[in-house]
Design a protein around this nucleic acid. Structure first.
Length: 823
RNA sequence: GCCGAGAUGGCGGAAUGGUAGACGCUCCGGUCUCAAAAACCGGUGGCCGCAAGGCCGUGCGGGUUCGAAUCCCGCUCUCGGUACCA
């Protein structure tokens, strides 16, 4: 320790931070105890993928914040669980392994070790005894078990369909993983459509509950909104139109519409190019054009669909259908603005009431009938109007309000058996199979005589073989398909020869239940111990980036609901409270990334300033939920502050008695600060908590000459240290021990305050004339406002503005302000 | 296009109807030093003024109020989400 003068030392964090990190871990300070009389608090960070790039200070923004909250909660007396684990399966790990020519089963542990080292050097207080890794058999064994649970409950099924294929990932993607037609991992890679048989989870069975219970979550509004939009519920009706082919054979075309009230305006129908009835209804004279259109749509639909204001295209089939309400024959067209994947893949087109249909009708000169009049007729009558209003051209419904007509028309549909009320969701089932190596094998065997056979629970895990060649092929088959030892397996049912499923599970399956595993991370009898889960879950606070708004957060809610229905958990929402930490940008304002060479690592900052300065700066620079930009200059402020805290705790030059009024002032400062910091910690507003602590530090420094060595002084310094402890755990621990304490400061109780002492004895009352500030008066708190008003009127600064004017009224707010209104 | 969030000094930000700019960064001046760095002390929204002090000021325009960064109406810009969902 560098001693500078008369026993005082200099703040050199590098000399002691490591020492405390090691000691905390040896003593198991942060181990969560299963079951306790204390209130439990389960705080979880989103499951991170341990990238080979390691952590940068952007990650620290999240992890330091949750760590501060965790440490605060412990001092408040909660039994806290704050675990950490690794979302180690999946494409990023596999791609990285391929790039480095190291198999993922060797590369991942290396990366994990580096992540742990980086988290430790920041003084983050995880309970490492609960560490989990989704790519290890004792974890994915239970991921497979949960797949089987889905299978048993009829929620896992195989289906054929047009799927999104990313040529770079060389695998199928779920809908949620396609952004604007591009792969979510390769933002310049357009996805392609291929027809494949895949495994799905029936998440749509839960669409309604997933939507409804959003209303009861304490989540950021925009995340709730994004989920709501994703689920995309719409209500209306299913209606069947009768169509005829050239031979006069009738075929029903089922459509979904949100506006059954506009049915009298349905002047044509549109089928999506993939619709099965297209081939049937197309007449010979139109067949060539229709077939050509279908091929063209299949080939370029995704690229074309991206051009923003693309003109609609389509061709007539030559077939016709009957509008069941007007009884008129209407033409059936094919157009790619109707998607096979939504609703029924067919629509009734109402050009008078729908902008898209209107645009199409205009282009191809199809009839347009307005059936709903706007409340105030404005534009030309051939214009489209999609709102609600009064019914016209609608037979018996003429003159009715369109909303009333809607329910009556639905009733008529049902009565005539040509349709019924219906609800549609935009969300589709979750495609979970991936044609890649690095994931949990799907525990299924295909048997020639028994068909699809689940692997018995007692035979789990289906081990992922340690392949030397794990690169994905070009043929859409998993590398596992090339390993005969893996593929060939006896049928669990009949013992005959079978083939294993060679696709692996989407990583989002792994992360859909990890929060449960932390409750009993080493359980070898079940995915989780139900008693432990009953104690710890649901999460008290869940923190992560907004980029998982739809995918992970939807999937893990779905899993929880399935587990609840299976009687395995007793709650239906895993995370009633969720927070998104803001994003940290590099000093150049861009996103921090290795490829942009603008990464700032916690290692380099901690080496230069110490972990506490890093932590303090990260929480101080911007609100926790707000974005930030790393400013290499700004960190000096925190380092100076901690240096001042250090100095305050150095041996007093002398011993003295409490001196008034300074002792009283200090007392009020401390109580006031405890109140502010407690409130800020509770609401995770760490930036203002640091401000308050800096103010207390400054006050102590100012009062030092009068109070140093006194009882009040010692109490003030100890209070400061306990309040700073969650933010800067190392320096406070070091100083705490230097003050003679044996036990860790992190085992101290959070200080309490007396509300009466959080207010100053003297208050500043603001004197305004017509709302403009003219003077300030210092008066004892609680002074009668009548007397303050008199003093205000007597003030030399106030008088010039009052003299010669008539006082209309005087507004007073006790201990705050006097506003003299003159004319 | 639609939905959402936001705009406060040179910078990060504070204040959610009552002293705008807390707390920091930067910069300027001072102390210490042979000197520099570090540290410490003081100043730092703009304009006018020697000063006392005054005027202006929270994206823009209006409104409500004794009083508006804060509430209401209209607009501009920025960021995020979404994209033919019938």
């Amino acid at each position: 320790m560098a001693i500078i003068e008369n026993g005082r030392t200099k703040y050199i964090p590098q000399q002691f931070e490591r020492k405390w990190q090691d000691r905390w871990e040896e003593e198991g300070l942060y181990r969560a105890q299963d079951f306790s009389d204390k209130p439990k608090y389960y705080l979880l960070d989103f499951f991170p993928y341990p990238s080979g790039d390691g952590l940068h200070v952007g990650h620290s923004k999240q992890y330091v914040g949750t760590d501060v909250a965790t440490r605060f909660r412990r001092m408040r007396g909660d039994n806290v669980m704050h675990p950490m684990g690794w979302d180690a399966f999946g494409l990023p790990a596999e791609n990285e392994a391929i790039l480095q020519q190291i198999p993922p089963y060797e590369n991942v542990p290396k990366n994990v070790a580096n992540f742990k080292r980086q988290l430790r050097l920041q003084g983050i207080s995880y309970d490492w005894s609960r560490e989990i890794n989704s790519s290890e058999p004792d974890y994915y064994r239970w991921t497979q078990w949960l797949f089987l649970l889905m299978f048993k409950r009829g929620l896992a099924y195989r289906g054929i369909g047009m799927q999104w294929w990313c040529p770079q990932c060389k695998t199928i993607l779920a809908n949620e993983q396609v952004e604007n037609g591009y792969c979510w991992r390769h933002h310049d890679q357009l996805v392609e459509k291929v027809a494949l048989e895949q495994w799905y989870f029936r998440i749509t069975d839960y669409a309604e509950e997933l939507l409804e219970s959003l209303n009861h979550l304490s989540w950021p509004e925009r995340i709730i909104l994004m989920q709501r939009n994703w689920i995309g519920k719409s209500t209306g009706a299913d209606i069947t139109f009768q169509a005829r082919d050239a031979q006069g054979v009738e075929y029903p075309i089922r459509v979904f519409t949100t506006r059954p009230d506009t049915i009298y305006g349905a002047t044509f129908m549109v089928l999506s190019p993939e619709h099965p009835l297209v081939d049937v209804l197309t007449t010979e004279e139109h067949r060539a054009r229709v077939t050509q259109y279908q091929q063209q749509a299949a080939r370029q639909s995704e690229i074309e669909r991206l051009s923003a204001e693309r003109e609609k295209t389509g061709v007539p089939t030559g077939g016709h259908a009957i509008n069941p309400f007007t009884n008129k024959e209407i033409p059936v067209w094919v157009a790619d603005y109707v998607l096979m994947s939504y609703g029924t893949g067919a629509i009734m087109a109402v050009p008078g009431g729908d902008e898209r249909d209107w645009e199409f009708a205009k282009k191809y000169s199809l009839p347009i009938v307005r059936v709903v009049e706007p409340p105030s007729p404005t534009e030309g009558s051939d214009d489209v109007y999609a709102g609600i209003g009064v019914m016209v051209n609608s037979g018996p419904y003429e003159g009715m309000q369109s909303e009333d007509a809607k329910s009556r028309i639905i009733a008529e549909l049902e009565q005539r058996s040509v349709g019924h009320a219906a609800t549609n969701y935009r969300m589709r089932d979750w495609l979970v199979s991936r044609q890649r190596y690095w994931g949990a094998p799907i525990p299924i065997v295909y048997c020639e005589s028994c068909g699809i056979v689940p692997v018995p629970e007692e035979d789990l895990p289906v081990l992922l073989p340690t392949l030397e060649h794990f690169e994905p092929g070009e043929d859409g088959r998993s590398p596992l398909a090339l390993d005969p030892d893996f593929v060939n397996a006896p049928c669990p049912k009949c013992g005959g020869s079978g083939r294993r499923e060679t696709d692996t599970l989407d990583t989002f399956v792994d992360s859909s239940w990890y929060y449960l595993r932390f409750c009993s991370p080493h359980d070898d009898q079940a995915p989780f111990d139900r008693t432990a889960v009953r104690y710890w879950c649901p999460l008290d606070l869940y923190v992560g980036g907004a980029e998982h708004a739809v995918m992970h957060l939807l999937y893990f809610r779905f899993f929880t609901k399935v587990l609840a229905d299976a009687g395995l958990v007793e709650f239906r929402e895993p995370a009633p409270r969720l927070l998104n930490q803001g994003t940290m940008h590099a000093p150049d304002g861009k996103r921090m990334s290795k490829s942009k060479h603008n990464v700032i690592t916690p290692d380099s900052v901690a080496e230069q300033f110490g972990a506490d300065t890093l932590r303090g700066y990260i929480v101080f620079m911007s609100p926790y939920t707000g974005d930030a930009q790393w400013d290499p200059q700004g960190i000096n402020g925190i380092h100076r502050w901690l240096g001042r805290v250090w100095d305050l705790c150095q041996k007093p030059a002398r011993k003295s008695a409490d001196r008034e009024p300074q002792a009283e002032e200090l007392k009020r400062w401390v109580h006031k600060t405890i109140k502010r910091v407690t409130a800020d910690m509770e609401s995770l507003e760490f930036n203002t908590a640091v401000s308050a602590l800096m103010e207390l530090t400054n006050a102590l420094q100012r009062l030092r000459p009068a109070l140093e060595g006194s009882e009040a002084w010692g109490w003030g310094v100890r209070s400061l240290l306990t309040l700073v402890a969650p933010i800067a755990p190392h320096i406070t621990e070091e100083l705490w021990h230097s003050l003679g304490h044996q036990r860790s400061i992190h085992l101290e109780s959070w200080p309490t305050y007396d509300d009466a002492l959080t207010l100053d004895e003297v208050v500043t009352v603001v004197i305004q004339v017509n709302g403009k500030l003219r003077d300030r008066l210092e008066v004892p708190r609680g002074t009668e406002m009548q007397s303050v008003q008199e003093q205000a009127l007597a003030s030399k600064r106030v008088q010039p503005y009052v003299e010669g004017n008539q006082i209309v009224k005087v507004i007073t707010v006790p201990d705050k302000l006097v506003n003299i209104v003159v004319r």
